[in-house]
């Protein structure tokens, strides 16, 4: 279980997250929704300790990780699929995936089996450079890299943003599969309310760096969406 209590998070002097509390049950998909610029990405980055400064408590399975360095949080079982994917363009697909291995607690080597099942294209092109892949393939690669870390919690930031529609479906399916088969807890930042409803078990609605609503996904009413997401 991932639990955040009273989180404040800052970039330089500007505070982006204000007193946010939030929790995600084991093996659940929690979607974090809200307009652009309300702090969804910053929330994920705060969990990994990638903002300039943060206060508050972050509990992973009961242990406080908020004092740890980013790499220690990664090794504690939190993996990150960032917005924009952050694939290393001149690393091969193999090396991009193996990068995730530095966080694997079991010390496992090589490419995890599940990657081959989910993304056969990657397995067939291990020696191609990451930079030549299409957006959708890079997204798959970023997920594969996160899986190599053997995470308990997967942080995914708009995994379907800017990706051609036929691959969006594949990626959505693989997210659901990772949750159901591997039992991963997934924090999913999403703009697409339709997918948030289909995949999520719970939701958190953010506005101005605060959680303004949270609950079971069934409680995500059209009224809430209209109030906090309509532009």
């Amino acid at each position: 279980m991932l639990e955040m209590q009273n989180i404040d998070s800052y970039y330089g002097r500007s505070q982006v997250i204000h007193g946010l509390s939030f929790s995600a049950d084991d093996k659940s998909i929690v979607t974090i929704i809200g307009r652009n610029g309300v702090g969804k990405t910053t929330l994920l980055r705060t969990i990994l300790g990638l903002t300039d400064r943060a206060e508050g408590v972050i509990l992973l399975d009961g242990g406080d990780i908020s004092g740890l360095g980013t790499y220690e949080r990664a090794r504690a079982g939190i993996a990150y699929v960032p917005q924009g994917r952050h694939i290393i363009p001149d690393f091969t697909i193999r090396d991009n995936i193996l990068m995730g291995r530095f966080a694997a607690r079991s010390g496992a080597q090589g490419i995890p089996e599940i990657v081959g099942e989910l993304f056969p294209y990657l397995m067939e092109n291990l020696d191609r450079q990451g930079g030549v892949l299409s957006g959708g393939q890079q997204q798959q690669l970023a997920i594969a890299r996160a899986l190599a870390a053997e995470p308990k919690v997967l942080l995914m930031d708009e995994p379907t943003e800017g990706i051609q529609p036929n691959i969006v479906e594949q990626i959505e399916a693989s997210i659901i599969r990772l949750n159901e088969e591997l039992g991963l807890t997934i924090l999913l930042v999403e703009q697409n309310v339709g997918f948030a409803r289909r995949a999520g078990h719970a939701f958190a609605m953010m506005e101005n760096g605060r959680a303004v609503a949270a609950g079971r996904i069934g409680e995500l009413s059209d009224d809430l969406v209209a109030r906090h997401m309509a532009i």
């Binding site: 790499y71 290393i88 530095f102 694997a104 890299r145 870390a149």
Partner: peptide
């Protein structure tokens, strides 16, 4: 060496992948 090269290209992502950058 792979850790060094990863840090050269993207230190934040390297850290998020469990590399002790320091």
């Amino acid at each position: 060496g792979m850790q060094v090269r990863a840090i050269m290209r993207n230190p934040q992502m390297a850290a998020a992948c469990g590399i002790d950058v320091r």
